[in-house]
Structures are given as structure tokens and as C-alpha cells.
Design a protein around this nucleic acid. Structure first.
Lengths: 217, 217
DNA sequence: CCTAACTTGTGAAGTTGTTCACAATTTAAA
DNA sequence: TTTAAATTGTGAACAACTTCACAAGTTAGG
């Protein structure tokens, strides 16, 4: 939980800010100059109060009677989220998932620049992916420092993940996105997000398995 | 929200069940026969009460004074989540993300069998990935039915995603995992999970941008 | 300039999710 | 067999999150 001028901001609110940011782009493209909390809410299946409350944590962006200025609000949210600047990103593990990430167009668009790629496979080290050379993971800590990497994406097998994370943390990087299907430990000052596709699938199977109870219970 | 014998189960609880399931595998491998809620909690950075409450929604699995039987609990959770059986899965879109998913070993292990692959690119249609033929997406609805597909993974560009989802829903599939960076609409009886890696990155940048406030505010 | 229609921002109320606290039960040791 | 230590299961208390409801401000039309 983060505090902004004494208010607690939940991860849910942060997530919705990202949704608003994307939606405002759509509205911009559709030619809207202002938008009401009701419009935003309808398109995201939220309540207008939720939208207003989320934004209210960060300031007053709207005009009563009129709504929010689309372009300006989008810019403000970009600043809040921190995507009004470029970020130096490194990728560890250039297997299936890593390769997909290097080619992921959304990343470039959003200012996430993958500057370095690492792997421990000698056959991959020295090769290039989208113009980026693959380095030996033994040089991880040193190179993260040298290139001022701020975010590391970990896409290595589960067994290797904690070791990589430890090196990343030791290098002073405070933000990690992991695709390893493992529980990872980081100090409290480091932000870690874990994506696990198998767990996402299990949400689906839970609902498929139990939805009948939803109606019959 | 799902109800089991009148109790409401949150998505957070479902998520934690997946974590317990994986942790119990580790404990099994480490040779434990029983485990306490405290042990489970410590390893997942949760409270023992949280663990016990989560499990209590589904029954009484422990023995007072002793804890939970590792192997048996794992099996019970598998049944609750619905991963004690094989699921027929189809993948739509065999680009970077789709290719990574086809090769994702966790899926096979968990009983998620990708039976069909679809794409709209004539150069890809007819080719094989991990032994699975790529079909023309125009045959999507018909083939989902024919092969009794229960879960569809959507890994197509944002602009195409809603169209694909509509076909999938029309085919009677009730569970969708999407990697498209778009807002998708599904009827309420369909479960949709959306993964958006750019949004995950934005959680990180939010924290990197605002964590100073955490300490100074 | 006045009024009607809108819409924000926010304290308060309501809802959902987490943690507490303890009775009930089991085990193990004396 | 008794007692001490451990641990579950769960109602109640607490905390976090969402929605309500309305005062305050803005716009547009007459």
C-alpha cells in the first residue's frame, strides 16, 4: 500500500488507473474532449463513484457539471503511474516467454525499453534478438548497474528464479516482473509482480467446476 | 463471486488455493506428511487465520493439534480448483505470445491440453506447432463445438480480440483467458481473465514513481 | 440573469475481506 | 491416566474497499 499525502492507495486503484489511461486514449481517438465519471464507469463496468474516488486520491481533475478533460486527464494519469518517461528494462531468460516479451509491441509503445538480455545458455549468449545482444547471466549484477536498469523481467525456469532475483536485488533494482511459476522472496523495498499463467487457468477451472453451485446453492 | 453451500468465495481465496496447491507439492517433495496453517502461512507470507479461513469455506480438512495431511489436502484442493481432470483447450492466435503458450510446460503438467490452434494468417494456417495443426479462424465456432473445447486462450491483436471472443461465446465456451491488451465484454455466465503485461509493468512504475512518497508523506 | 440539468468531490454508510481469539480436539510425555 | 502443548475451525471484531448521497460548482437555454 502506497501513501500519497496521507491517503492509502490500493493495488486495485493502481490497476484501474491503467485501465482509465487506456480508455482515455480510445476516447481521445473518438474525438471526445471531456468525459464524465459515468461514461468512464460504463465502459469499464465500474460505478461512477468508484472512478471519482480513484481519481480523488491524486487531486481534482474534473469540472463539476462538465466532467474530465480527456487529453489532460490522460496526461495526468500518465504522470501518476510514471509512464510519462522512458524506463530502462532488462530481460533475464530468452526462452519462449522471453522471446515473446522482446517482440511485444505494447512495451515499446509505453516507453519500456529492453536494453539488456541475459541467459545462461552458451548457445544463446552472443546471439541477437530484435537487435539486442544476449549476455551471459554471470555478468548480471555488474551490467544492471552499468546500464542503469530500473526494471528487470525474470523469465527463467522456476528453479533458477530466486537466484536471479537475489542478484537483481543486490544490483539495487527495485522493480521485478516475474513469469517464473515459483514463490519469490524480495526485501520489502522491492516491488515484485508475478505472472503465472497456470494460476490464471486455474481461476477458470475453478469457475467451470463450481459455477453450477452458484445457481443451485 | 461464487457460492459454495451459501458461502461467498472471493477471487483472492481462489488465487490462494492455487498457491497452497503448489506449496503442498513442495512440502510433499520435502517429505512432510502433515503441515500446520502456521507453516503454510509462513511460506506464503500470509496469516495462519487466513489459511484456515480459506480452507474452511470448502470443508474441514485438518486435525486439531496436528495440522493438515499434506498429500490428502493437495488432492482435495485439486478437486476444488478442478484440476483433477484434463481440460480441452484451444488457442486463438499463434504469434509471439501464442507460440510461447504452446511450449509452456506448466500447462501440460497441469492437464491443460491445447487441442486446437487457430489463426487468420494464410501463411500460418496448415503449419504445425508442437504437433498441433493451425486452423483457419473462420472455422472457429464449428470446431470448438466439434472438439468439445472448454477453455479458449485468446492471443490475438487487440483489434481482433472482441470478435474472437464473440465467436467463442457463441460456441458455448464459458471460460476465456485473454492476452489481448483490450477491454473485452462477455455475458455474465462466461468467466474471463485478462492478462496484460503492460499493465503489470505499470504497477511497477507506479511504485518506482511513488515510493518516495511512501516514506516522506 | 435565472433556472434546470449535469457532474464533481467527498464524508458517511455499507459491504467485503482479513485477523483475532478462544473453545474444541488431538498428541505426547510423565 | 492426567496434563501440557499444539493446532483447527469459526463467530466476532476489525480493516479495507466500494457505493451512496448530497452539497457545491458549471453549463446551457430562455
Amino acid at each position: 500500500m502506497v501513501r500519497i499525502t496521507g491517503k492509502r492507495i490500493s493495488e486495485s486503484t493502481i490497476h484501474r488507473l491503467s485501465l482509465y489511461y487506456r480508455l482515455l486514449k480510445v476516447l481521445q481517438d473518438e474525438g471526445y474532449e471531456t468525459v464524465s465519471s459515468k461514461d468512464l464507469a460504463d465502459r469499464e463496468k465500474l460505478t461512477p463513484a468508484q472512478v471519482r474516488k480513484d481519481l480523488s486520491f491524486f487531486g481534482q481533475f474534473g469540472t463539476r457539471g462538465l466532467g474530465y478533460p480527456v487529453t489532460e486527464l490522460r496526461q495526468q494519469i500518465a504522470e501518476i503511474i510514471g509512464i510519462n518517461k522512458k524506463w530502462n528494462v532488462a530481460l533475464v531468460g530468452i526462452g519462449n516467454v522471453g522471446s515473446a516479451l522482446v517482440s511485444y509491441k505494447e512495451f515499446q509503445k509505453q516507453g519500456f525499453h529492453i536494453k539488456l538480455i541475459f541467459d545462461n545458455d552458451q548457445r544463446k549468449i552472443g546471439s541477437f534478438h530484435k537487435g539486442i545482444e544476449v549476455h551471459d547471466v554471470v555478468n548480471l549484477r555488474q551490467m544492471l548497474n552499468k546500464y542503469n536498469i530500473e526494471i528487470v523481467i525474470v523469465a527463467v525456469p522456476g528453479a533458477a528464479a530466486q537466484g536471479v532475483v537475489n542478484e537483481v536485488v543486490a544490483a539495487g533494482v527495485n522493480a521485478i516482473l516475474s513469469f517464473a511459476p515459483t514463490n519469490l522472496r524480495v526485501p520489502s523495498h522491492v516491488t515484485l509482480r508475478s505472472e503465472n499463467m497456470a494460476i490464471e487457468m486455474e481461476h477458470l477451472t475453478f469457475h467451470l467446476t463450481n459455477e453450477n453451485l452458484y445457481y443451485t446453492a
